[in-house]
């Protein structure tokens, strides 16, 4: 708030997200949060791996999973990681329009991913895999659902940022916000790498 000071033009620093103490705090704090999230997802993966044999009378992994669908979802999320990388490169270049454009692309890919995931859950449900069917079902839906919730939160977060800052230009305040949102998005992709490997590929292969 600039109630007793004139608005002064700021020049673009090489790393606008880390140019202020606030920005550096956000950047570091958010990384540490991701360190905690690693354990959070580790616990979910462990639970799933411990319980994935507990299918009882319900369908098991090999009856349900389709590699083609998972492959498409993986490619979508991987590409969205690249678009968010481009967004950050544009931010450092001072090209605000480019930042916004690539972030919108990320949001669009995120929504597409969510759409596939909802379709996937719908299919499984109709194939007889309810949330309470078996320990495998519960732990599968919890793990993949928590990841999906992260995607949904990321999509909404980035959308809020994009609308709020659609015409302000890059500032020392919003640069760390975009940067942390991008970190979060990459982290979602990191988790998905383990999900497609451990849940889907191992589910079909072993």
């Amino acid at each position: 708030m600039a109630d007793h000071q004139a608005v002064e033009k700021q020049t673009l620093p090489p790393n606008p997200e880390k140019a202020t103490l606030d920005g550096r705090n956000k950047y570091l704090g958010f990384w540490f949060f991701l360190g905690g999230e690693t354990v959070l997802f580790g616990s979910l993966f462990g639970t799933y791996l411990g319980l994935r044999g507990g299918v009882v009378d319900g369908p098991g992994p090999a009856d349900l999973f389709h590699l083609d669908l998972v492959f498409i979802m993986t490619m979508i999320l991987l590409t969205s990681s690249l678009t968010s990388v481009f967004a950050v490169i544009n931010m450092k270049r001072g090209n605000y329009k480019g930042l916004l454009m690539w972030m919108w692309a990320t949001v669009a890919l995120g929504i597409a991913f969510l759409g596939f995931e909802i379709y996937e859950f719908y299919e499984y449900y109709h194939a007889g895999l309810g949330f309470t069917t078996s320990a495998f079902a519960s732990s599968f839906y919890t793990l993949v659902g928590t990841h999906g919730a992260h995607v949904a939160f990321g999509v909404s977060w980035i959308t809020v940022l994009l609308i709020r800052y659609k015409s302000t230009g890059l500032t020392l305040t919003n640069a760390p916000k975009f940067y942390t949102a991008v970190l979060y998005w990459h982290f979602i992709d990191v988790v998905w790498v383990f999900i497609f490997t451990v849940v889907y590929l191992l589910g079909i292969g072993g």
Binding site: Q10, P13, T171, L172
Partner: peptide, 17 residues
């Protein structure tokens, strides 16, 4: 007197580019 909500102006340095 730094204003955190002022748009950042100017181009990145050659090195940054």
């Amino acid at each position: 007197h730094e204003d955190p909500s002022a748009p950042l102006q100017g181009a990145p340095s050659k090195n940054t580019e």
